[in-house]
């Protein structure tokens, strides 16, 4: 039971941390922030990998469901980070001199 208490403690701290980190973001960055955060939520891939990697003969259902989860989580992670990077690459300050 102790581990659950510890995990809930971690949960509480992370929620506060999340609120603190995000609360003062300029609205220019709202979209990249959202897609970047969304990519982070793809961390569920860790759980997916563990399921997809169990011994196939033991439980094929778990492996197949896990592999599907890995696929969607990877899609989320790769798509999320790339698209965020693409957007952020476009945000430029004004360069007065060259042109």
């Amino acid at each position: 039971m102790d581990i659950f208490i510890l995990l809930i403690f971690v949960l509480m701290l992370s929620i506060f941390l999340g609120f603190e980190l995000i609360s003062k973001v300029p609205s220019t960055l709202h979209t990249p922030l959202m897609s970047g955060a969304n990519a982070i939520s793809g961390i569920t891939i860790v759980g997916a990998l563990l399921s997809a990697g169990v011994h196939y003969g033991d439980n094929e259902e778990t492996v197949i469901l896990g592999a599907l989860a890995v696929f969607f989580a990877t899609l989320n992670v790769v798509g999320g980070y790339l698209v965020t990077n693409r957007m952020l690459a476009m945000f430029k300050k004004k360069e007065k001199d060259n042109k």
């Binding site: 992370s14 929620i15 941390l17 609120f19 980190l21 995000i22 959202m34 969304n38």
Partner: peptide, 15 residues
Amino acid sequence: LIVAGSMVGASGIIL
């Protein structure tokens, strides 16, 4: 998973 997930959860609620 708990740390990353809940941070995203919190940031989404703020937005």
